[in-house]
Structures are given as structure tokens and as C-alpha cells.
Computed example of a mutant assay.
Amino acid sequence: MAKGKGKDDKKKGKGEEESKEEKPKESEKAPDFFRHPYVRYLAYAPEFGNALATFSPCHFGKFWCYFNKITQTYILLDSLSKGNAAYLQNKADEQQAEKPHPIMVALDRYVWHMFASVILPRYSLYGIRQSLIKFSNFARICQEPIRTYFVTALALASIPVIIKPIDELTDHIMDNSFRKIYGLGDKPDDKDKKDEDKDDKDSKKDKKKK
């Protein structure tokens, strides 16, 4: 009898370990295609259009509107995809108590892009450009039109550096403002992580007291 119980306990232990291993796999989400670093460059297409207009000897300004439409299409596709994903998830998880509305999810992504893809990049690159112009004028590095090319090239080179900080700043702004209003704040996984962190801190404090 004792041997039989021991075997049952081992089977239960193995079953629990397998279930723990399967849970992280289920919780892992597919990477967001529209947040991929290379895809995020589509949000900065107007800046590349401005650069081409600066470097091109012909009148390239008439084609700048097409670069602007690339960014608009990118924002629209990302917003619609997030709304569609929320709709399909709500349809699949019928027992879920709090279901985010697909329209609100799409609106959340659209507002996110207004900050991360339009407002903050435009003002950031404008500030970088103005700083480079003042520096080049002060240092007298080169004369026109080489100075213009120099400023434009360095402004474009700064785009890979500012993409991630701007995205993270926008996430922080959205989490502490709009998402609290929409009801799209901390997800259950995030809450569990915060609770685990609190428990770890409390256990460390108790050990120090002992």
C-alpha cells in the first residue's frame, strides 16, 4: 500500500510540474508585429520624405504627401488589428468576466500612435534639428548647402535612438492616464507580478526583523 501511495504521489508531482511548465507557454503571447523595431520606422516615413526633399535636386516636395499617407495607413492598420484581436478574444473567452470592448482597444492604440508616432517624434526631431543648426552655426563647421545636409543626416541618424524611449514614455503616459479612464489598465498578469513583488519584499522585511 505504501509503495502504491508513493507512486501516486510521484505521478501527481510530475503532473503538477508539467502543468507549471505548460502555463508559461500558454501565457506567452505572440510578438506584436506593428511594434517590431523595423516596422516602427513606418511611423517616421514623413521625416524620410523631408530628408529626400532636402537632398534631392529636383522638386521632391510634391511627393511628400505619399510618405505622410504611409504613416497614416500604418496607424490605421495597427488600430484595426488590435480591435479585431480583442473581438476574437472576447468571442473565444465567453466566461471572461471583464471583457475589453474592441472599439475601446482600437481607440487606445490610435491614441497611443498619436503620441508615439506623430506628436512626440515630430517635436523631438524638430528640437534635435534646431540644436544641430545652432551648434553648426556656432562652430562654423561648414557652409551652405553642406550644413543643411549635415543637419538632416544627423537628425535621421537619431531616429533609431529615440524610437524605444518615445514608445516607453508613451506607454507610461497611457497607463497612468487614458487607460485608467478606459478601464484598460493593468492586466491580470501584471497584477500577479506586482503581488509577487510585494510578497517578496514583505518576506525580506520579515527575515531582516528576525
Rank of each mutant, 00 (worst) to 15 (best):
L88V: 11
P31F: 04
K11C: 04
A92F: 07
A51W: 14
P160D: 09
I141V: 15
K82S: 08
E196C: 00
Y74C: 12
F178W: 05
K198C: 00
T73Q: 05
T148P: 11
K204W: 00
V161L: 11
I173P: 07
F115Q: 08
A157W: 05
T71A: 14
G127I: 13
L88T: 11
D195K: 07
A106S: 10
S177V: 10
F138K: 14
K201G: 04
D197H: 03
H101L: 03
K205Q: 06
I159F: 09
K3L: 02
A30L: 13
Q72W: 02
D189H: 02
K11I: 06
Y87L: 12
E26L: 04
A51Y: 15
A139L: 11
P100L: 06
Q89H: 07
K14C: 00
Y38L: 15
M1Y: 02
G4E: 10
G61F: 06
P121K: 00
L156A: 08
D167E: 02
H101M: 02
N84P: 03
K3C: 04
K7V: 02
S56W: 02
I133E: 14
D202L: 03
M1R: 01
K82V: 05
K201T: 04
E144V: 11
A92N: 09
Y110K: 10
Y87A: 10
A43L: 12
K193N: 00
K69L: 14
F150C: 08
T54A: 14
F33Q: 09
P145V: 08
R140Y: 06
E168P: 01
S79E: 07
I173S: 02
Y149S: 08
A155T: 15
D167H: 02
S158R: 12
K3D: 10
H59T: 04
Q96A: 12
L184S: 03
P145K: 11
E144M: 12
A43N: 07
L80I: 14
L107R: 00
T148E: 15
I128K: 05
G127M: 14
L120V: 10
A30C: 13
L107A: 06
V161C: 08
C58Q: 06
D192Q: 01
D200G: 03
A153T: 13
P24R: 01
H36D: 10
C142F: 10
A53M: 05
V105D: 06
E21S: 05
Y126Q: 09
I119H: 03
K180H: 08
F55C: 09
G6P: 00
W64F: 09
M104C: 01
R109Q: 14
P31Y: 07
A97P: 00
S19H: 11
M104T: 06
P102F: 09
S79W: 13
G15Y: 00
G127R: 07
F150Y: 11
K209W: 01
P24G: 03
S19R: 14
L88Q: 15
A2T: 08
L76P: 13
Y110Q: 10
